[in-house]
């Protein structure tokens, strides 16, 4: 068992490292001039500089080193918690992220919880209801919810809840009220994705022969679905938990932009707009880290949920 856990940890670190490397490669190796790009972000126009000035400017941001050296020194920095320096804001990336962590964390958490509950409840209800029209509506809801651009949902919410009804503040991060609309914005998409997967899973599960056995005992449909359907239907969906949490976190980019919340999502948007490579690298790596941690937790807890599985062998589901 210890070996299994250690193995999982090693694997998680491996994925995290690979994600960092892939992002680094994307940012530094794609056919563009990363140096000009970043110096541009710092407000320096490369073509107007003399070679000497250019060299100083590069040295200022550590861009004069060979790419491999830069990669290893950056990686070493990440391992020690030094995420580099933002070129646009001339500030340590770690402190930038630290300052903005709280609003994003609270938003992501709220959205994740709402989405999990809503998605599960929707799928559960859709599989339970027999009345065809209601069933049809419920089963179509996820695909409906996933069809609306998130920013559009956000705008509609602002239009109605803030401007028309004046119930909630349109922007800002003050108080729980400011959390409501961003949470709805994010959780509609995430809940839709979850519900779509769960509905298929419920369909599969409820057509299993052991469900017939349970019904033949004389249990009601409600009891059968609760005692024999729920757990078995939820199990395969645990594989997409990491992806869903990732989706929640990245959705905050849109939500925070629309609702002007000063969080990491907003930071990401600004960083891309300014082509601030170190900040983008740090944020992508952070998101990968969240995914890795969620999956690690799921992997470690899974044997407790499914008695059949001793060592992380489970069926894979995709969204």
């Amino acid at each position: 068992m210890t070996r299994y856990i250690l193995g999982r940890f090693a694997q998680a670190l491996g994925v995290l490292w690979a994600a960092y490397t892939v992002t680094f490669a994307v940012l530094y190796l794609l056919p563009s001039d990363p140096i000009a790009l970043q110096l541009g972000a710092a407000g320096i126009e490369t073509d107007k500089l003399t070679p000497a000035e250019l060299h100083t400017a590069k040295a200022r941001f550590g861009l004069d080193r060979p790419i491999l050296e830069q990669y290893f020194s950056d990686l070493w920095g990440f391992l020690r918690g030094d995420l580099g320096e933002s070129i646009a804001k001339q500030q340590s990336v770690a402190s930038l992220i630290g300052d903005r962590l709280a609003p994003t964390l609270s938003l992501s958490l709220a959205a994740a919880v709402v989405a999990l509950l809503a998605g599960t409840a929707l799928a559960y209800l859709a599989s339970y209801v027999r009345w065809r029209p209601a069933r049809l509506v419920l089963t179509r809801l996820p695909s409906f919810g996933a069809s609306f651009p998130q920013f559009f949902i956000a705008l509609v919410l602002i239009q109605f809840l803030s401007f028309n009804l004046g119930l909630l503040p349109a922007t800002g991060i003050r108080g729980w009220k400011s959390l409501v609309m961003p949470t709805i914005t994010i959780s509609i998409l995430v809940a839709s994705q979850l519900a779509a997967v769960l509905m298929r899973s419920f369909d599969d599960t409820l057509s299993q022969p052991y469900i017939v056995t349970a019904r033949a005992k004389g249990l009601s449909r409600a009891a059968v679905q609760w005692h024999h359907g729920l757990r078995n239907a939820l199990l395969p969906a645990t594989t997409i938990l990491g992806v869903l949490v990732g989706l929640t976190v990245t959705s905050s980019i849109i939500a925070e932009t629309v609702f002007s919340r000063n969080g990491i999502g907003k930071l990401a948007q600004e960083a891309v707009l300014a082509q601030d490579v170190p900040v983008v690298l740090a944020i992508v790596t952070l998101a990968a880290a969240i995914f890795v941690v969620v999956n690690l937790v799921v992997d470690l807890l899974y044997p407790l949920l499914d008695p059949r599985i001793v060592q992380g062998q489970r069926k894979e589901v995709t969204i």
Partner: peptide, 13 residues
């Protein structure tokens, strides 16, 4: 009822 296939007739969890 004693269902047909015992391998899948019981709730695995």
């Amino acid at each position: 009822l004693v269902p047909q296939d015992p391998m899948v007739g019981l709730n695995p969890t």
